[in-house]
Nucleic acid binder design. Structure first.
Length: 370
DNA sequence: GTATGCTTTCGGC
DNA sequence: TTACGGCCGAAAGCATAC
């Protein structure tokens, strides 16, 4: 029998709102709602995150600010605009603490991370519990932020475990406990099982991870294909061999803006879009990245989202290419959306990055010369 | 029939 | 009853290739 790996997943509690509490401790006993204002009218915008006091009143990430205000009327709730510079700085500090505790480290978004601690705890899960407490203590002392931690034999179990007890939770799942831990959970707790897949599985009579674990593998493969079928089967059994490894560069850079006024005029839209192009192209150049894909995005008055994208044969970092492609894609998108609806928000994304820009340039020069 | 890549939509915070 | 951000990666769905 292989000795088990020991993986820890750390999840910063209600992160943005907790950062605000840290900066102003007077907030701690009040509902705190971190908002992103669109600037269109007094309270237009959405909730980014809220502390647990606000959540008790039904405030959730993503709801309109005006709705959150309604739920919190007659309380001393505090509504704050998101301060991303602060959150990024705090995140970076905590990530550096976590990184130092791991044999390997993998950041997951702004407020989550995996660390492999197998060597550090000698493969022992009781040590892992103490180790995790030490991490929680250090982060609390140095950064005044609480985190919830899950420990398990792999990333899948560690992540699910971290979500079981919050805030400031610590859930350790030993290898011999994995089966009992997973069995009663609904399948959508598994990574990769979203809304659509849950529905399909439910139709197949699969509601819990236990149902999935006992489902015939051949039938799973027949329905989901070999890769996904095997992946789901293994996940249900708590099997996940994926390594903890440092993430490289971001996979995409995008910006989206809310328009001052709704419009379907291409020229108006492009005024905004070209500004975004200039910004994200500069960021790509700053990171020395070429991009192969461009996506434009529009949210209409009914809040429906639409996008169009294009992938080049070779990467580029050219601003004019980006603008031309943006124009072409918005033309196409405007032709294909319902005529009676205007655009409310628009965005541009570049992705499919490569660092082979240099090679491509040389190749182009070579072709030009011949 | 499956793998792969591209496009579009979804979902978390 | 409506209301509504910005950014990211994942999921879904399709086309094409083998």
């Amino acid at each position: 029998m292989h000795p088990s790996r020991v993986i820890i997943h750390a999840d910063f509690d209600y992160f943005y709102a907790q950062c605000e509490e840290r900066e102003n401790p007077m907030l701690k006993d009040k509902p705190v709602v971190v908002c992103i204002y669109s600037g269109r009218s007094e309270d237009s915008g959405a909730v980014s995150t809220a502390n647990y006091i606000a959540r008790k009143h039904g405030v959730r990430a993503g709801i309109p600010i005006i709705m959150a205000k309604r739920k919190l009327k007659n309380t001393d709730a505090v509504f704050l605009p998101a301060n991303f510079e602060l959150y990024e700085k705090v995140s970076e500090n905590i990530m550096n603490i976590l990184r130092a505790y791991g044999d390997a480290f993998e950041q997951w978004g702004i407020d989550e991370a995996f660390i492999e601690v197998t060597q550090r705890v000698n493969g022992d899960f009781e040590n892992a519990r103490q180790f995790a407490q030490k991490i929680q203590t250090e982060i609390l002392e140095k950064e005044k932020i609480t985190v919830s931690i899950g420990a398990g034999p792999n990333k899948l179990i560690a992540k699910i475990a971290a979500g079981r007890q919050k805030p400031q939770g610590l859930t350790v799942v030993k290898p011999e406990e994995v089966e009992g831990f997973l069995a009663p959970l609904p399948v959508n707790e598994l990574i990769g099982v979203g809304k659509k897949t849950s529905v399909v599985m439910e139709e197949m009579g699969i509601k819990t991870v236990d149902d999935l674990a006992n489902y015939d593998l051949e039938k799973l493969i027949k329905r989901f294909g070999k890769i996904l079928g095997v992946y789901f089967h293994n996940s249900a059994l708590g099997i996940d061999e994926s390594p903890v490894k440092e993430r490289g560069m971001a996979e995409s850079i995008s910006r989206i803006w809310t328009l001052k006024e709704d419009t379907i005029e291409l020229d108006k839209i492009l005024e905004y879009a070209y500004e975004i192009c200039t910004d994200i192209q500069a960021r790509a150049v700053g990171l020395n990245l070429g991009f192969k894909s461009v996506t434009v995005h529009a949210v209409l008055q009914d809040m429906s989202a639409h996008s169009r994208s294009k992938t080049f044969e070779t990467p580029t970092d050219n601003l004019e290419t980006l603008k031309e492609t943006t124009k072409e894609l918005f033309q196409r998108l405007l032709n294909e959306i319902p005529e009676d609806l205007k655009a409310r928000r628009i965005g541009v994304k570049i992705s499919n990055f490569t660092r082979e820009k240099q090679t491509q340039k040389q190749l182009t020069e070579f072709v030009d010369k011949t």
